[in-house]
Design a protein around this nucleic acid. Structure first.
Lengths: 193, 193
DNA sequence: GTCTATACAGGGATAGAC
DNA sequence: GTCTATCCCTGTATAGAC
């Protein structure tokens, strides 16, 4: 209820703004992605953007949230076999959306400030992702060199750090390096190495 | 030659600005470290800062460069025995200078733009650090699971990624996790594990 | 609810006086 | 070498039109 009628336009506008924001970031880089520029793409004034999202930072946080919904990261991490390939597939996909990667990394830094709107987002997402990794990549048939939580932190850290390297030098083979790391730290029983 | 005389004051001012910039970043965070604020600490106007460094970004890049000189990272990585502890010591030290870590991470993201003044800095520093890691942490007495360059990239990525996690949640044990990673991927012959 | 118009404070950067 | 003055652009708050 109340989804149709007077709200319909607003919902559509929200989506439009989110997509335009990502578009501008992809084309002009994060730093030059001003509210003015995004608003022009949508065909409205900057104030209209702030009507839907309270601030620029909240807008960008919403872009990240939407990506998570859309990607639905978690399903890929259900079992150990699919986990490795699912994880690598996400990383491979990131290669196709540099704007999103730039946005993610930039906000991850800014969100260090507890007052930043994305602070809780990163805290929660980070923990959710880690327990998902810990659950999927824990192998019990060998003496584990690393406890699950440490393993998860390392994989997450390596993934984020590789994105930084890749942004500065796009020739960096993110999927290949992550595959090597995972296969070394948490070799799949099925692959027998 | 030409270091004394009319240049002397300028050199001193440069150092003073660099230190003040770091001071303000440490106290107020990167985002709130405006040229105005830094200039006030030094006792000059923002325009004076721009006289020495061409732009805000160049100023902050210079801060990072100075840190590298001062730290002199490389000496610690001369041999395999000292490498591990030297590396961990740097990470432990970073825990004491959150402002510097924030600055480094922020610039690492912004420098993705090839036009950013810190772009080349990160490209060069990154490569130098990696070859240093590759040289130090390569163990020949066991079948190497990872080639030296991949190993170096992973250690560097994990280190940078952990800083991201640590900034958002300062309870993260960076040195402990990095130690676990290094001991797993490149166990020291002396320690025999 | 959706949005424009307007105004404002703050930022970095530039030109030119001293 | 340093300052003042100025400029333009940023994000944001408010008022009110539709």
């Amino acid at each position: 209820m109340a989804v149709r009628g007077s709200y319909a336009k607003g919902v559509a506008r929200r989506e439009e703004i989110l997509e335009s924001a990502l578009d501008v970031i992809g084309r002009k880089g994060y730093q030059n992605a001003s509210l003015k520029e995004i608003a022009e793409v949508v065909g409205v004034t900057p104030a209209a953007l702030l009507h839907y999202f309270g601030s620029k930072e909240e807008l960008f946080t919403a872009v990240l949230r939407k990506r998570d919904e859309h990607d639905g990261l978690d399903p890929a991490f259900l079992d150990a076999e699919g986990a490795r390939d699912g994880f690598l597939e996400v990383i491979r996909h990131n290669t196709q959306v540099p704007g999103l990667v730039a946005l993610f990394s930039r906000l991850a830094v800014d969100a260090a400030d507890p007052a930043h709107p994305a602070h809780d987002y990163f805290l929660e997402r980070s923990e959710r992702l880690r327990s998902s990794i810990a659950e999927s990549f824990t192998n019990d048939d060998q003496r584990p060199a690393l406890d699950p939580d440490t393993l998860a932190r390392i994989i997450q850290a390596a993934s984020d750090g590789l994105q930084l390297q890749w942004m500065i030098d796009p020739t960096v083979d993110m999927p290949g390096i992550m595959a090597a790391l995972i296969d070394t730290l948490a070799p799949s029983p099925a692959r027998g190495d």
